[in-house]
């Protein structure tokens, strides 16, 4: 009698047909490492561009409240479009070819809602008395924004960056289908060649990348809340 659960575990960890360690060793530098690099590149560039758009839009939305509902409506619709559909629509546009560009555009579109919402929430969380005090000390509006409001809002903004980054690392895998590169390429190649090793390598590495990014940004978030740390100590 063999235990099916044990067999399954054996398949998962060491079964010759599921993970071909030989292949991994031989193709590590050629296939795996470039896929990781490509994935980090796609995610990093997308979050950076999204942040460059979301911060000003978020600050303006917090100032001019009337602009906020339409902004969340539009970015909310973008956010709910399934990624494979958004990729398809983008590559159908004239002048957009298969490759990393449409993937980055889509990833930026997905980050906007989260980043803008957290920027506004962060600015809202600054107590009005603090701003009054800053004004009483003679700070100009610009100084209040950059020296008081944004630093105090930063932990919540970073929390948004964290959610956006994890989301984007996941969606970026699908971008490989329209030649965006990254770890999704391993997954799709594995599916096409019916070679589980590549599927598992791509899936596990993409998950690991998302979890590592999550933990790093969580650390940053905590570090940026020195007052919370002081209270605990």
């Amino acid at each position: 009698m063999t235990n099916p659960a044990l067999l399954f575990l054996q398949d998962l960890t060491g079964g010759p047909e599921l993970i071909d360690w030989e292949w991994l060793r031989e193709n590590f530098w050629e296939d795996v490492v470039p896929a990781i690099q490509g994935h980090i590149f796609l995610s990093f560039v997308s979050v950076a561009i999204a942040l460059a758009i979301a911060l000003p839009v978020g600050i303006l939305s917090a100032r001019y409240r009337k602009a906020y509902p339409p902004v969340t409506f539009v970015t909310g619709i973008l956010y709910s479009i399934p990624s494979l559909a958004l990729f398809s629509i983008l590559i159908s546009l004239p002048g957009v070819a298969l490759g990393p560009t449409p993937v980055i555009i889509a990833l930026v579109a997905y980050s906007l809602l989260i980043l803008i919402r957290n920027t506004v929430a962060g600015l809202d969380s600054v107590p009005p008395e603090t701003i009054d005090a800053a004004r009483g000390m003679g700070l100009t509006n610009r100084q209040i924004l950059f020296r008081v409001e944004l630093p105090l809002a930063l932990p919540i903004i970073v929390a948004g960056i964290r959610i956006a980054t994890v989301t984007i690392i996941g969606i970026a895998t699908i971008g490989a289908y329209i030649n965006g590169g990254g770890l999704g390429k391993l997954i799709f190649d594995g599916i096409n060649r019916q070679f589980p090793t590549m599927i598992i390598a791509g899936a596990v590495l993409a998950t690991a990348l998302a979890i590592i990014a999550d933990l790093l940004l969580l650390g940053l978030e905590r570090y940026l809340r020195p007052w919370a740390r002081a209270r605990r100590a």
Binding site: F8, D11, L12, L18, V166, I169, G170, I171, T173, I174, G184, I187, G190, I191, P196, I199, I200, G202, A203, V204, A206, T207, A210, I211, D214
Partner: peptide, 17 residues
């Protein structure tokens, strides 16, 4: 942790398993 796992990763893993 589950939320960090990419959807394509889970679907693709279901294929060999």
């Amino acid at each position: 942790v589950g939320r960090a796992v990419p959807s394509l990763a889970i679907l693709a893993l279901a294929l060999p398993l």
